[in-house]
């Protein structure tokens, strides 16, 4: 979603984001321990993290899985070329299915790339993923030109990182 505004984070937020980017200490009171180096109380750390979660600055706090050690080898990016005025409706029918992990509308790059609606399906078995794609197409998308791009190899999956604290960097898609 393109945001028309940016949420303000103050210097203490940025310092905190830098301190937790590689994860929490495995201690009984990790937020207290993080706070020590930043001269923040445990309560301040918790309040700031909660606020940044509710502002969606921290999209999610928890585990980030590598797909492949868990056997998720069939990672499909499915794309459709949907007229702009029909794309919201098409996206709605895609996201109604719980096997879909991501769904976006992106800019086309005609003539090389005509597709604008994307969804990701992460599966363990390719034939299962192919059936799931067929379900999507039967559910109103078959009329639109489509391609499925399975991933062959993964070269990099670093996830969200700060380039060097305290600068703010990225988000994992």
């Amino acid at each position: 979603m393109n945001m028309a505004f940016n949420i303000t984070v103050d210097e203490r937020d940025v310092a905190l984001l830098g301190a937790i980017q590689d994860g929490l200490p495995f201690s009984e009171r990790p937020f207290k321990d993080i706070g020590k180096a930043l001269e923040m109380s445990e309560e301040e750390v918790i309040v700031r993290i909660e606020r940044m979660q509710s502002n969606n600055i921290i999209a999610r706090f928890g585990l980030v899985l590598q797909h492949r050690p868990l056997g998720y080898r069939a990672n499909a990016m499915v794309v459709w070329d949907v007229p702009d005025d029909k794309v919201d409706k098409a996206a709605k029918s895609i996201t109604a299915h719980d096997f879909v992990t991501l769904c976006y509308c992106r800019a086309r790059r005609a003539p090389v790339w005509q597709y604008n609606l994307y969804c990701m399906i992460h599966g363990r078995e390719r034939d299962v993923v192919e059936k799931q794609i067929a379900i999507l197409n039967n559910d109103g998308l078959a009329a639109f030109p489509s391609k499925t791009l399975f991933s062959r190899r993964r070269f990099k999956q670093t996830g969200a990182r700060f380039s060097k604290p305290p600068e703010i960097e990225r988000r994992c898609t």
Partner: peptide
């Protein structure tokens, strides 16, 4: 053992003025 790549926050850089593209 590599099942988890990270245990920590995922930042939404677009909310802070950053940008992401494919």
């Amino acid at each position: 053992n590599g099942v988890l790549s990270r245990f920590g926050p995922l930042y939404n850089s677009e909310r802070m003025g950053g940008a992401v593209t494919l």
